[in-house]
Write a protein that binds this DNA or RNA. Structure first.
Lengths: 261, 261
DNA sequence: CGCGGCGTTGAGCTCTCTCAATAAGCGTGG
DNA sequence: CCACGCTTATTGAGAGAGCTCAACGCCGCG
């Protein structure tokens, strides 16, 4: 997604993607089967559960995180009400999470990029409170949560990392609430583009040119505006020379100005 | 707040407050000094860190949670940028948390009642990302987070409880985002009143009659609408016979109808 | 008693939504 | 390879929910 989609076995970089080292998560070539995860050799480990762990501890994590799962575009990783058993580390691809509000209305509560963690919502009630839907063909590491908890009791730095991940999700959502509570449609869209850009940049992709994998409707839902307003706002920003829009292809021409919105 | 405000030494119940056992957190009478917390004797322990712990483990928690802090109305428990060291369990009173968005605008990200936990936002970056302001004279248990982490490595049920608290905060915020993204002003206000009512009910207070401790402006900010719209909406709901409003005093006359909004 | 903070109410305006038409992609199958 | 249908995106026009600005009243406090 956002230029991250390649099949796990492919070794070629995508068109206008990574200049920096390829981040596509995959087992060490020719060693592991497609259903076996290996934190030790994963290019995403510094973004993920394994960050800050020493070699020995990563090896222990490897034992807990034994397999991964592939999810085709449009398919569910989990859905509302499902028994909570695992959290998922996104290896490749991208997801959206959707919560159903009463009266049938839905809200897209988040978009997820490689290295980010899905499923934390399920811990509280032992069942998931949203649907996680793949925006493109994706792969995730399956992390049985009771094993993760057990490891956290033994590995202090892993425990701290899990706490940080959960806290970061709280902070992210707080920011999103502030956006929904305060900003104009234009500010929301600008802020959204910058957020995607930043996150892609941190993963080694171009923060200037990227492809949005979600629809205008998804974006609108996430930002609390209609899809028409998203479309109109993108057009206006383009007219003002701040971005270039070609369907899902986006180029940020003037970050400064976007930030100022 | 919402009828929870008493001084720690007072033993009288407030006007139209608890019919059920008084929930006001306090040390066992005549035993502990005002600055010493004691989970073992705290009336809130089933809502708080100590829930699901056996006697021996509560005793160990007592050692970590040695003191409490009193915060006068309008004062800060912590503020944005403060070094993160503790989380806080609210014993009595109430708080709001306020995040500053760029360009000076502020957003009230949450209201907190006795038994709820403040400060989880600080874990991710080691510094707090919001201001926590007392809505009335309040007291909190000070829980040094590194001690809590250490205990969590030893007490599985405490670890699980901490995870559940953090996950519940994520779920709460997701719900708030959905509210901000989808609902009309009237639905937001109705939903807010019901949420406060439910939480008070679970604490043994009347879910029907309560006092809002925050201003219309705080409510508006939290709900993403203006204070005028809050005021107008409350008036309208009163006119329709769903609630009775007298300044900060609220009575819910028709929960069903409120829910239907 | 006067002042400042808070709450209520009104009137006009604006931003965004709704409804609608059209165009552009994309996958499927003939 | 193209036709077809379905999904997605763009753009316009009118309507309405909520905002802004403003006046006024209430209440607590110095």
């Amino acid at each position: 997604m956002f230029e991250t989609s390649i099949s796990p076995s492919a070794d070629v970089a995508v068109a206008d993607a990574p200049q920096t080292p390829t981040l596509h998560a995959r087992p060490a070539p020719g060693k592991a089967s497609p259903s076996t995860a290996q934190c030790s050799t994963c290019m995403l480990r510094h973004l993920c559960m394994a960050s800050n762990l020493n070699h020995a501890d990563v090896a222990r994590l490897d034992i807990a995180v034994r397999n991964w799962r592939s999810v085709k575009q449009g398919q569910l990783l989990y859905s509302t009400g499902d028994l909570f058993q695992n959290v998922y580390a996104l290896r490749s691809g991208s997801f959206k999470t959707v919560v159903a509000h009463q009266c049938g209305r839905e809200y897209v509560s988040g978009f997820f990029l490689p290295g980010e963690t899905l499923g934390l919502d399920g811990i509280a009630t032992e069942s998931h409170t949203c649907d996680a839907i793949a925006l493109e063909d994706s792969t995730v590491c399956v992390i049985p949560f009771h094993l993760l908890e057990a490891l956290c009791r033994e590995i202090k730095s892993l425990q701290q990392h899990v706490h940080r991940i959960m806290s970061a999700e709280i902070v992210r959502e707080t920011g999103q609430m502030a956006l929904l509570g305060n900003l104009t449609a234009e500010q929301r869209v600008a802020s959204f583009l910058l957020s995607i850009s930043d996150r892609l940049g941190r993963r080694g992709y171009s923060p200037r040119d990227f492809t949005l994998r979600m629809t205008r409707e998804d974006i609108g839902s996430h930002l609390g505006i209609t899809l028409e307003t998203v479309s109109r706002t993108l057009s206006r920003l383009q007219q003002e020379g701040l971005i270039r829009v070609n369907g899902k292809q986006i180029a940020l021409l003037d970050r400064e100005a976007l930030d100022a919105r």
